[in-house]
Simulated assay, not measured.
Amino acid sequence: MRKKLVVGNWKMNGSLASNALLLQGLVENPPVDAVEVAVCPPFIYLGQAASALEGCGVMLGAQNLSAFAGGAYTGEVSASMLQDLACEWVIVGHSERRAYFGESDALVIEKLRMALAAGLRPIVCVGETLEQRESGLATQVVGAQLDALTQALSAAEAVSLVVAYEPVWAIGTGRTATPEQAQEMHVFIRQRLSAGGWVGEGVRVLYGGSVTADNASLLFGKPDIDGALVGGASLVAGSFLAICAAAARVSSGI
């Protein structure tokens, strides 16, 4: 059985003071065994988060990494640097990276290779825009993103990789794919991964896109939704913990 995973993506938010309060809330309410929990702060706050979260069961991740191992690449952060700060996870290919910073499927693959080589567990994001969905191209767009993965990486390499389906039209907009829409795409993702030679049923697939405490239980109740990549709601300890609790309840059959 695939264990539920809830990951908080803080994006470019936070301060030392606000982070301390948020992290304290997480430490005082550690996750239960039924669900895995991770947070991904901005690079500059990884050290603060690593220190605060030590031993509490909440894992640490980064929002991005460099496609280079090291050297004269001003402003870049390597996989080995993330390891130094106790990161276990790293988000790769988020739609905001693809849209605002021109990250192609090829660059996403290079970053995935760096993450895997360093022992980091990548969360690779796929998803379609509103225009693409309304044009009937959602599966075509997501399928092409998945094919790039299966053509470049082996099934063995995929064992430690998580896929996050994030409909771009639902990120930070307050709009959310219905549980039925999300489930339909998650089934498609598994089928496409299997067609590419991976074991689709063995890959955890998260949903991301305006996940809240109010809709989490309905989303997690779908058989192919293995958790969430949470944006805005992860910046408030109570909201994020409520989403984690919803995942735990579903996993425990409550």
Rank of each mutant, 00 (worst) to 15 (best):
D226R: 03
F101A: 12
V162T: 15
E134C: 08
G221K: 09
D224I: 07
P122G: 13
E110H: 10
A228S: 15
E157S: 09
E131H: 12
E131F: 04
A156K: 14
R190I: 07
A155Q: 09
A156T: 15
G196T: 00
F101N: 08
R204P: 00
V159L: 11
A99M: 15
Y165R: 07
Q151G: 13
P179S: 09
G136K: 09
V187I: 15
M114R: 15
L149G: 00
S217T: 14
A115G: 15
T212P: 03
A118E: 01
V92W: 13
V159M: 08
A152T: 10
A115K: 12
A182D: 01
V168D: 02
P223K: 10
P179H: 10
L137M: 15
L149T: 01
A216T: 14
Q151L: 13
S194V: 05
L112V: 12
K222W: 06
W169M: 07
E166P: 04
Q145L: 04
D224W: 04
K222S: 00
L137A: 14
D224A: 02
S104K: 05
S210V: 04
Y165P: 11
G202P: 01
T150Y: 03
V142I: 14
S135K: 13
I225E: 02
R190Y: 03
L206S: 09
L193Y: 12
E201N: 15
Q145R: 11
V211G: 02
E131I: 05
L116I: 11
A177D: 00
A228W: 09
V187D: 10
G202I: 03
I171V: 14
V124M: 04
S210K: 11
P179R: 11
S154T: 15
R190Q: 06
V230D: 13
A170F: 12
L120M: 12
E96R: 11
A164S: 01
V126W: 03
G102M: 06
F101H: 14
V230G: 13
L153C: 02
V203N: 10
T139F: 00
R133A: 02
L130F: 06
V168P: 10
A213V: 03
G197D: 10
T178P: 00
L229D: 01
P122T: 13
V199G: 06
L146A: 11
G208M: 07
R192Y: 11
S135Y: 06
P122I: 13
G143L: 03
I225Q: 08
L161Q: 08
G102I: 00
D105Y: 06
A156S: 14
H186P: 05
